[in-house]
């Protein structure tokens, strides 16, 4: 993972991901909130963002099941956890609450930071603090 080629790939993919978020409208918190507000004037766009993303990623993951390594020789690092436990559901639920509070999730938060939105700095700093806190107080077994 420390080969220069891998690091360059990570940077370029990060840019592509960020551009995708901007095109999709995910970098506009008001649009995200309009999707989450089913009782108001509902904007279903974000369902199509997810559909478009999964439509491309699903065959890419499916095709990789027949191989052990990717194009540059890196082994496919399949997530090993499969359990659906309290920790997962509580974490997911809390994340949803925070997402609904501002319409910002981790990827768009970084894009907003790059766009120079001042509140994004607070969001990202607090998000890192929250992650750090869980790692200290309630580390995964």
């Amino acid at each position: 993972m420390n080969r220069p080629m891998m690091i360059v790939a990570a940077g370029l993919v990060g840019v592509l991901f960020g551009l995708g978020l901007i095109v999709a409208g995910m970098a506009n918190p008001a649009k995200v909130l309009a999707f989450l507000d089913v009782a108001g004037a509902w904007d279903p766009s974000l369902a199509l963002v997810m559909g478009g993303a999964i439509g491309v990623a699903l065959p890419a993951f499916a095709l990789s099941r027949r191989r052990e390594r990717g194009w540059l020789g890196a082994r496919f690092d399949w997530p090993r956890a499969t359990q659906i436990d309290r920790r997962l559901l509580l974490g997911g639920a809390l994340f949803g609450v925070g997402w609904g509070m501002a319409g910002v999730c981790p990827g768009p938060a970084l894009v907003l930071l790059g766009a120079g939105v001042p509140q994004a700095l607070g969001f990202v700093a607090a998000m890192l603090a929250g992650m750090w806190l869980v790692g200290k107080l309630w580390p995964a077994k």
């Binding site: 993919v13 592509l16 993303a53 439509g55 990717g70 194009w71």
Partner: peptide, 18 residues
């Protein structure tokens, strides 16, 4: 935009395995 996001996920997987 969704397709670009999916493409980014697919590329990270196929290039770096992550």
């Amino acid at each position: 935009g969704g397709a670009l996001i999916g493409l980014a996920a697919a590329l990270l997987w196929w290039l770096t395995g992550r």
